[in-house]
Amino acid sequence: MPELTRRRALTAAAALTAAAGIRAVDTPAASAAEHHHGSPGAFDEVYKGRRIQGRPADGGGHHHDHGGGYAVFVDGVELHVMRNADGSWISVVSHYAPVPTPRAAARAAVDELQDAVLLPLPAN
């Protein structure tokens, strides 16, 4: 049996770490919850009496696709969302309060709007 050297131990540790990282990222649960490029899956629910929906966008949207390929709607009106570099999400309604998911952004918008109607943003 070859002698265990520091180099071999570090190489083995690096290989195990890399293998563990790949396995953690490629689990079925992670694949089911996220679509292409880490985009969250679709949702459709009623939150505080308002219908909120979210789904991966087809890429044909306007505003330079700031939503990271994801579309969110409150009562059928598009809520413009943007994914930050750290993976958090913000919306046009709650721009200074990052949240972890587009669903959380939709809920935060409903909380902020209360009974007010979300008005569509004009396309430039």
Rank of each mutant, 00 (worst) to 15 (best):
H62E: 11
A116T: 09
D58I: 11
V74Y: 07
V72H: 04
R6W: 09
G67S: 11
T27E: 02
T11H: 01
H66V: 14
G21C: 09
R51A: 03
T11G: 06
M82D: 09
T11R: 07
V46W: 07
D58K: 12
D65N: 15
G87S: 07
R8H: 04
S31M: 12
V81R: 00
D111F: 02
R6I: 10
V93E: 11
H95Q: 14
R107L: 00
A97L: 11
H66N: 08
E3C: 08
A19G: 04
R55T: 13
S91T: 08
V25G: 01
A57T: 11
S88Q: 06
T17Q: 01
P100T: 08
A104N: 03
T11K: 05
L121D: 12
V25Q: 10
P98I: 13
A85S: 11
S91E: 02
V117T: 15
N84F: 03
Q114I: 02
A19E: 02
G87T: 02
V72L: 08
I90Q: 09
W89G: 00
F73V: 09
R103Y: 01
A32C: 10
H63G: 04
R23C: 12
R51Y: 02
V77R: 10
M82V: 11
D26N: 15
L16V: 13
G60Y: 14
W89N: 00
P40F: 00
I52Y: 01
G21N: 07
N84E: 11
H64F: 14
T101F: 12
V99S: 05
G67E: 06
D111C: 03
T5W: 01
P40T: 03
E78V: 10
V110P: 01
S39V: 11
L118D: 08
H35L: 14
A71K: 11
V81F: 01
R55Q: 15
A106P: 04
H80F: 08
R6M: 09
G69K: 01
A42D: 15
V99I: 05
H35Y: 09
H35W: 09
V81I: 13
R7M: 00
F43L: 06
W89D: 00
V25I: 10
P120Y: 04
R107E: 10
